[in-house]
Amino acid sequence: MVSAAAAFVILVAAGAALVDVIAVRAGRPAATWRQELAHALATRPVDDVWMLAGAALAAAVGVWLLALALSPGLRRLLPMRSPAAMRAQLDRRSAALLLRDAALRVPGVRNARIRLRRQRILARADVHFRDPGQVKTDLADALDDARDRLALSRPPRIVVRVRRRSTK
Score class of each variant (00 low, 15 high):
Gly108Asn: 04
Leu74Arg: 14
Arg28Gly: 11
Arg147Lys: 12
Ala151His: 14
Ala55Thr: 09
Leu98Ser: 14
Ala14Glu: 01
Leu70Lys: 12
Met86Ala: 08
Ala142Cys: 12
Ala112Trp: 11
Ala23Arg: 15
Met51Arg: 14
Ala13Ser: 12
Val61Thr: 11
Asp47Ser: 13
Thr137Lys: 15
Val49Gly: 11
Pro155Gln: 13
Pro155Ala: 14
Ala53Leu: 10
Arg147Val: 01
Arg120Ser: 11
His128Ala: 12
Arg81Leu: 03
Ala13Pro: 01
Ile158Gly: 13
Pro29Phe: 01
Val46Met: 06
Arg34Asp: 09
Arg157Trp: 02
Met80Asn: 04
Leu41Asn: 14
Leu97Phe: 03
Gly62Asn: 04
Ala16Glu: 04
Ile121Asp: 12
Val61Leu: 14
Ala146Trp: 09
Arg124Gln: 13
Val46Thr: 08
Ala23Leu: 04
Gly27Met: 07
Ala123Gln: 10
Met51Ile: 07
Asp48Phe: 01
Trp50Lys: 13
His128Ile: 00
Ala84Pro: 11
Arg149Phe: 05
Asp101Lys: 12
Gln119His: 10
Val49Thr: 08
Arg130Phe: 06
Leu57Tyr: 03
Val21Trp: 07
Arg118Gly: 09
Ala56His: 05
Gly54Thr: 05
Leu90Asp: 07
Arg113Ser: 12
Pro83Phe: 02
Ala23Ser: 15
Leu122Gly: 09
Ala102Phe: 05
Gly133Asn: 13
Pro83Asp: 15
Pro107Tyr: 07
Trp33Cys: 04
Leu18His: 11
Val109Lys: 15
Arg149Thr: 04
Phe129Trp: 06
Leu37Asp: 11
Arg100Asn: 10
Ala96Asp: 10
Gly15Asn: 08
Ala67Ile: 05
Ala103Phe: 09
Thr137Trp: 04
Ala140Pro: 02
Val24Trp: 07
Leu52Thr: 10
Leu52Cys: 06
Arg93Pro: 02
